[in-house]
Amino acid sequence: MTVVGDVAVYRAELVVHRPSGPSIDLGGVVTYSPRRAVRWVRTRAEQVAQQLAVPSGTGALDWLGDQVAFGRAVYGLMAGNPVTLTVVDAEGCAYALVARPGGGTVGAHGTGTPQGREAAWLAA
Rank of each mutant, 00 (worst) to 15 (best):
R72K: 13
A69F: 02
G76K: 08
T105H: 09
D89C: 02
P22Q: 12
T86Y: 02
G76T: 09
L97Y: 06
A96V: 15
A120Q: 14
A53D: 14
G92T: 02
G27H: 12
L97P: 01
V106N: 13
L97N: 01
V54P: 06
H17L: 13
R18D: 02
G110S: 02
L64E: 03
R11K: 13
A60W: 03
G102W: 03
D66R: 10
S23C: 01
G112E: 05
L64H: 05
A12T: 09
P22Y: 10
A79R: 15
E118F: 10
E118R: 03
G76W: 02
A49K: 11
L77D: 05
P55L: 00
F70Q: 12
G110Q: 04
P101E: 06
V98D: 11
A123G: 14
S20F: 06
N81D: 12
T86W: 08
T31H: 02
T31N: 07
L77R: 01
A79V: 09
P82F: 03
G28F: 03
R44A: 14
A53I: 04
V98I: 15
A123K: 02
G71T: 11
S23F: 01
A123W: 05
T58P: 07
A69D: 09
G21N: 00
A99C: 07
A73L: 00
P22F: 08
G65M: 00
P19N: 07
A37F: 04
D62Y: 10
V98R: 15
H109P: 03
Y32F: 14
R11C: 11
T2R: 13
R35A: 13
L14D: 07
L77Q: 12
Q115P: 02
Q51G: 15
V87F: 00
V38C: 09
R44Y: 07
P82C: 05
G80N: 08
Q51T: 08
T105M: 07
H17S: 11
G28Y: 06
A119F: 03
T31Q: 10
V74W: 11
R44D: 09
R42H: 08
L97T: 08
V16Y: 00
G27D: 10
Y10T: 05
R18M: 00
G71I: 13
V7G: 00
A79W: 05
A53L: 13
Q50A: 14
Y10I: 05
V83A: 02
A120G: 00
P82M: 08
S23H: 04
L77Y: 15
P101F: 05
P101C: 10
E91Q: 13
A94M: 08
H17Q: 06
F70K: 10
R36F: 14
R44F: 07
A69Q: 09
D66W: 05
Q51K: 14
V38E: 11
